[in-house]
Amino acid sequence: MAISESDVRHVALLARLALTDEQVRHLTVELSSILDHVSEIQSLDLAGVEPTAHPFPMRNVTRPDVVRPGLSRERALLNAPEAEDGAFVIPRIVGAEEEA
């Protein structure tokens, strides 16, 4: 196995996925087979090959520093489950403090 059940539980927690024990066992097998498959690349001699950040041979794509119209506040909040004073409402945050 390329990864363990505890690896799967860790990644699931980071992704905020609630998995049953059965799903963890299942995913450990599936993810391991994917990693085993990809690891075949490591048997190749890749000395001198730069990491490929992007498959397109394009560089330096930017936009000029120009303001463009965005969404009205009404439209921005349209899909919000709850809104108050023009802001998105989120539930009480538990177990965490301010993040920079």
Partner: peptide, 9 residues
């Protein structure tokens, strides 16, 4: 955050 009922974003 501590003690807040809810938060606005």
């Amino acid at each position: 955050i501590a003690g807040a009922d809810h938060s606005l974003v």
